[in-house]
């Protein structure tokens, strides 16, 4: 029998703990494929956050460290400064990266740490059961914004890529979405570019992936995809916010 598709060897055989319809699995696959394609599995260390993907340390077939909530970029800094040949990435959700870990994120970026951050923005806290996140949309209902996020009291969602792109230490910042096949292919290209940057020691790269959370959004996966497309993408425009290497070499972004 001819093998036409195989699970990437960068993922273990551990059953994923994510909800039906969740896009974490797809994004894990994109990272895994990238690590295999770049042949860096043996020298990669991944950092799992606190959030739905806390168990990511069981899923990636690379050495893994589980970081305190929000501290992934600091833990990654310690690893990157200790393993000169290492390929270090963090996998973080919106609460982890853009709320409790804002300082660690911003300063790892400002220092130009040679790490990759894969930032999953699904506009909600998943693991704790659907509370308002720093990226929750205005008007979006969550367990802690039951009447919809009121910007008068809860402020506005944070646009991470735009903010980080202002920092000189950032080599690469791109926002992609896991909503359609073409966008997932673009997400793969972005993730690969981020890891290529790191292998070439070009500094800090972040790929923000807009993702869905059917369980906590209270929608079917299909409705969730539509909601992401209609509500999130207009507020969080997709695209390359910074690509130092492309600027330096005169090449275009993705």
């Amino acid at each position: 029998m001819k093998v036409v598709y195989e699970k990437t060897s960068a993922l273990t055989d551990q059953t994923l703990s994510y909800c039906p319809g969740c896009t974490h699995g797809v994004i894990h696959k994109l990272i895994g494929e990238t690590l295999v394609e770049l042949d860096v599995l043996g020298r990669t260390v991944g950092i799992a956050p606190v959030g739905c993907s806390v168990l990511a340390y069981n899923f990636f077939n690379v050495d893994m460290v589980q970081a305190p909530h929000g501290r992934g970029p600091a833990v990654a800094t310690g690893l990157a400064r200790s393993l000169p040949d290492g390929v270090i990435f963090t996998y973080q959700g919106d609460g982890d990266l853009a709320a409790i870990g804002t300082a660690e994120t911003v300063h790892a970026a400002a220092r130009g740490e040679n790490i990759v951050i894969i930032f999953i923005n699904n506009a909600i806290y998943g693991m704790t059961g659907g509370q308002m996140a720093p990226t929750t949309m205005p008007g979006q209902m969550t367990q802690t914004s039951p009447y919809g996020r009121d910007t008068a009291t809860a402020g506005y969602p944070v646009r991470v890529c735009e903010m980080l792109a202002t920092l000189d230490g950032v080599a690469y910042a791109e926002r992609v979405a896991a909503n359609t096949v073409p966008n997932i292919r673009r997400a793969k290209a972005a993730i690969k570019r981020a890891f290529e940057n790191q292998v070439a020691r070009r500094g800090f790269s972040i790929v923000e992936v807009l993702a869905i959370c059917p369980t906590n959004w209270g929608m079917t996966p299909i409705d969730s995809i539509s909601w992401l497309t209609e509500h999130m993408i207009p507020y969080y425009p997709l695209g390359v916010y910074k690509d130092k290497h492309a600027e330096n070499t005169g090449g275009g972004g993705v």
Partner: peptide, 26 residues
Amino acid sequence: GIFLQAESEIAAVNMVLGAASAGVRA
């Protein structure tokens, strides 16, 4: 060696956590 001035004491101890994970004396 590496000297790094962190953004906070919290970040510093977590950098130690990362470095210690890598197996170095931090």
